[in-house]
């Protein structure tokens, strides 16, 4: 199962390392990654494979959101189907 991780917040050193470290901890593989600065905000999008993650997606979402709060950025993980549904015919 694949999901999209999005990280949005003020740019500062170490965000990518922190996020990818947390994903690694939960057995999540990053398949694609892109980042950009939009209106002074750091925006990183990752396509990840969560099939080896032992946690439910809802639980994972709660953990990443909490970590994001500690790092001062917004981190969310969403099932990729919501994006595919809205943007693909």
């Amino acid at each position: 199962m694949r999901a999209i991780v999005s990280v949005i917040g003020k740019d500062k050193p170490g965000i990518i390392a922190a996020v990818s470290g947390a994903l690694y901890e939960h057995g999540i593989n990053i398949e694609d990654i892109s980042q950009t600065i939009m209106q002074e905000y750091f925006t990183m999008i990752m396509l990840v494979d969560i099939s080896r993650c032992p946690l439910e997606l809802a639980e994972l979402s709660r953990i990443l959101e909490e970590k994001g709060r500690q790092w001062g950025v917004s981190v969310r993980i969403q099932h990729e189907d919501i994006f595919n549904a809205m943007h693909k015919i």
Partner: peptide
């Protein structure tokens, strides 16, 4: 493949 723009649009 989804683009960053599409993903950001949904989040917004």
């Amino acid at each position: 493949m989804l683009t960053s723009k599409e993903i950001i649009e949904t989040i917004n």
